[in-house]
Nucleic acid binder design. Structure first.
Length: 472
RNA sequence: GGCGCCUUGGCGGAGUGGUUACGCAGCGGUCUGCAAAACCGUUUACACGGGUUCGAGUCCCGUAGGUGCCUCCA
């Protein structure tokens, strides 16, 4: 079975056929580094991380490019009046994004180009557009260059809208435009703007418009035609529509497939600064273990709206604990049998089919839980061959999704000194409790268990002895 | 006004024509000295009204409510 993806442009599930067999080029619109990352940024990055991991698992060589928009109105605005330069602000925020991505195991892209590093490529496209009659420099002395939407009959093809039906943008800077729907390719430098934010160009000093950067960077690194273009649903229009129009008008075939991830809603509404309901990455990272956060953000289908609600992370924590419990228990139980270390990393067919079906992660996760259930049952039956087989499957599946709770990437960064000290003390108490239980002194045994419990340490009695673990 | 999306059991969240999604929470049971964990069972869901069909959360039409984009946005 081949991978099928929902193409936003076709509005249909389509078979994925790469341009070059065995290779996939993906371009994803990354963040404008104007302010701290929030839950939506993480969700988006995670969605394409899942895609990238699945393609890699399937044997593709993936070239994954996710840009950083480091020059834009908002960045200049946010730096205005502060002692921090706009470029310092952009870089500081970029580092925050990188840290947040790393925290939840989003693999670094193959390359992460910054818009400011591709100004010449943007200018080259603009020049081609002007020469082709699809763009014009204004004659009002501003140095602005606009895309001429009326000159491009296919304008609106991505979002299936007719130019005439679109509400004219209430754009205060539209004086030089031929049509209010035309969008900026190049913005002439304005009085008072930092000179560091102006690049020389055939149309005068200035800076790029928002959309042109993605046309330039995607084709620069992936070629004038490439496989997949992704981004948040809110970027479909105008950003992606404009990207597509200017790239096609400039003669590039551009993306073969368009993917859009769903947004995050808080109490039924899209998160936004004006509503004051933003959930920032830093809050999430502080309130849940990284693997739990990754599980939660990735467990819903990438095209669905993800509802953030109180208790969501606790639910995810319980689900992850269930998986971890099996992995932990199975490895411990198999350790002193001939099945130790024999688990083969096998992806079950049902999991593969789910992932191939437009990345149906919810169903893939259901396969994991089902396998965990069967694995636990096998453990209860002391069927170690079956346990080992299912252990391998769960490990393989959770690895592909990046949610293996036992993966070294989730290990705490502590040096282990404190942990060893704790283990020594706890094991002493556990041993005391075992002694008490043998003499049927359950009062003492239960007291030790209660005291450990109050310290956040759980005790589980198993056929092979008591096992302790830290809660959470 | 234009282009979309959503409405599933206590909660989250899959499912696009015909057998249990799955997770969390609850309840009952097995196991256990008691627990915990685990397993088994269970709570008979698909906004509403029509229609198509042998058969519809699942397709069609309509109604209601919610929501996204059209302005910076993952």
């Amino acid at each position: 079975m081949t991978l099928r993806l929902f193409d936003s442009k076709d509005r249909a599930l389509v078979d994925f056929v790469p341009l070059v067999p065995g290779h996939v080029g993906i371009y994803v619109c990354g963040p404008t580094v104007q302010s701290s990352p929030h839950i939506g940024h993480l969700r988006s990055a995670l969605a394409y991380d899942q895609l990238r991991r699945w393609l890699s698992y399937c044997g593709f060589t993936v070239t994954y490019v996710r840009n950083v928009t480091d020059i834009d109105d908002k960045i200049l605005l946010n730096a205005e009046g502060s002692t921090e330069e706009w470029w310092a602000l952009a870089y500081r925020v970029e580092l925050e994004f990188t840290a947040a991505y790393n925290a939840i195991g989003v693999l670094p892209p193959t390359y992460e180009p910054r818009a400011t590093a591709s100004i010449p490529e943007m200018q080259a496209i603009i020049t081609r557009l002007i020469e082709g009659g699809h763009a014009y420099a204004t004659d009002d002395g501003t140095g602005d260059v606009y895309f001429d939407t009326a000159s491009w009959p296919d304008y609106g093809e991505l979002t299936h809208q007719k130019l005439d039906d679109m509400a004219p943008a209430a754009d205060s800077d539209s004086r030089g435009k031929k049509d209010v729907r035309d969008f900026a390719l190049w913005k002439g430098h304005k009085e008072g703007e930092p000179l560091t934010a102006a690049w020389s160009s055939p149309w005068g000093a200035g800076r790029p418009g928002w959309h042109i950067e993605c046309s330039a960077m995607s084709t620069k690194y992936l070629g004038t035609q490439f496989d997949i273009h992704g981004g948040g649903l809110d970027l479909r229009f105008p950003h992606h529509e404009n990207e597509l129009a200017q790239s096609r008008a400039a003669g590039d075939a551009f993306a073969n497939y368009w993917l859009h991830n769903g947004l995050v809603a808080v109490t039924g509404q899209k998160m936004s600064k004006s509503l004051g309901n933003s959930i920032f990455a830093s809050e999430l990272i502080a309130s849940a273990k990284p693997v739990v956060l990754r599980y939660y953000l990735g467990a819903a289908h990438y095209r669905s709206t993800l509802e953030y609600h109180e208790g969501a992370l606790e639910e995810a924590e319980a689900a992850v604990a269930r998986i971890e419990g099996f992995l932990d228990r199975a490895e411990r139980r198999l350790a002193d049998t001939r099945f130790a270390g024999t688990a083969e990393l096998v992806i079950p067919d049902e999991f593969r089919e789910a992932m191939d079906d437009d990345l149906s992660v919810p169903q893939a996760v259901a396969v994991i839980h089902e396998t965990v259930r069967r694995g636990n049952a096998a453990l209860d039956d002391e069927d170690f061959a079956e346990t080992a087989a299912l252990l391998g499957q769960v490990l393989a599946m959770t690895e592909v999704l990046g949610i293996n709770p036992l993966s070294p990437e989730w290990a705490s960064g502590e040096d282990g000194v404190a942990e060893r000290a704790l283990a020594t003390l706890v094991e002493r108490l556990v041993s005391d409790r075992e002694t008490a239980r043998k003499t049927r002194d359950f009062t003492t045994a239960d007291r030790i268990r209660d005291e450990l419990g109050q310290a956040g340490i759980s005790i589980e009695d198993t056929p092979s002895g008591a096992h302790w673990s830290l809660d959470g």
